[in-house]
């Protein structure tokens, strides 16, 4: 009996093996039935796969995340480093772009005035607690800088060199309370004394009480003796308000400087200038307002059917 049973299982094995080999042969010969069977299997399995995928995908993702946690952390650290480096690069580029713009404008002003200048970078601002308004430049006597030389930015006067070392110079800003300079109103010969107040605005006191001054008047440097510290014609600022107090001995006004003294980056120290007075030619041009285009839409009403009917009626149709 056992031998008979063993023979049956052997026969079963052989028949199953033959079936498998037959299937292989059919598949290798390109019988489309098997391809269809695979396709049918996929069709049958797809809903189950979708459902199983819906149910198990969070678990699969969880295991996947666990498996990749080391790599993910490493990648995260790498990306953080890259991000940091890129942010530093962007900040540097922005800073460089700003400095370049300032350098271009200051050289442009110096070129128009025909000044011989040394460009310098502001490397430090003086402490405000000392009530002095100063900045330190990265150029000194080795670059030809001397005491009482005028310092300009692309917009106008910044200050005067007060102290010079071999490789640095300290500049007294126009906003310093102890700063005084002679100015004139552009287009006229009205003169006055400009003095710093320690803030972002300056005081102007006209020399002659009979002179007139009004808001938006532009002030230029009057020029010092021997052009030291100031050559004539350097833009200083604009009048923002006038003190018209009756009985005042002199006319006074408040002035806003052209130069942005709180954000100085690149400036130029005037080494020498030509003997020509540039007059009012260095006044910064006011920004041109670009008009915003407006769109005009014309709407013609479409005649309604009732209107058409009434028109027909009126025409006798």
């Amino acid at each position: 009996m056992a031998q008979r049973g063993s023979g049956r299982t052997r026969l079963l094995l052989v028949s199953l093996l033959v079936t498998a080999l037959f299937l292989i042969t059919l598949d290798l010969r390109g019988v489309s039935l098997l391809a269809s069977a695979r396709s049918a299997m996929q069709t049958v399995a797809k809903p189950f796969q979708s459902a199983a995928n819906f149910l198990f995908s969070p678990i699969g993702n969880f295991f996947g995340d666990i498996a990749n946690i080391g790599q993910a952390n490493e990648r995260l650290d790498q990306l953080k480093e890259e991000n940091k480096a890129l942010q530093e690069k962007i900040a540097t580029l922005k800073d460089m772009r700003g400095e370049l713009r300032q350098l271009k404008s200051v050289l442009d002003l110096a070129g128009r005035a025909r000044y011989e200048v040394v460009a310098a970078r502001v490397i430090a601002f003086g402490p405000e607690s000392s009530f002095e308004r100063t900045v330190t430049l990265d150029v000194g006597s080795t670059s030809g800088i001397q005491r009482d030389m005028a310092v300009i930015s692309g917009a106008g006067v910044v200050g005067v060199v007060k102290t010079v070392t071999a490789r640095s110079a300290i500049v007294q800003l126009v906003s310093d309370p102890a700063f005084r300079m002679g100015v004139r109103i552009a287009g006229r010969q009205t003169m006055g004394i400009l003095s710093g107040k320690g803030s972002s605005y300056f005081d102007l006191e006209l020399l002659d009480a009979r002179d007139t001054i009004k808001q938006d008047d532009v002030l230029l440097s009057r020029g010092s003796s021997g052009n030291r510290p100031f050559a004539p014609g350097i833009p200083v600022g604009t009048v923002v308000s006038v003190d018209d107090s009756i009985g005042a001995l002199t006319k006074r006004a408040e002035v806003r400087p052209f130069a942005e003294l709180s954000s100085l980056g690149v400036v130029a120290v005037i080494l020498s200038e030509e003997a020509i007075d540039p007059r009012d030619s260095l006044i910064p041009k006011a920004p041109v307002a670009i008009p915003t285009p407006t769109v005009t839409v014309f709407v013609t009403p479409t005649p309604s059917p009732s209107a058409k009917t009434s028109t027909k009626k009126s025409t006798g149709e």
Partner: peptide, 26 residues
């Protein structure tokens, strides 16, 4: 044998497989 045959056929019908049908079964 029958269990292996059934399991093999199911595995062989996996659509992503390039191998001939019947190979896993055998």
């Amino acid at each position: 044998f029958i269990s292996a045959f059934i399991a093999g056929i199911i595995l062989d019908l996996t659509p992503s497989f390039d191998t001939p049908v019947g190979l896993w079964t055998a």
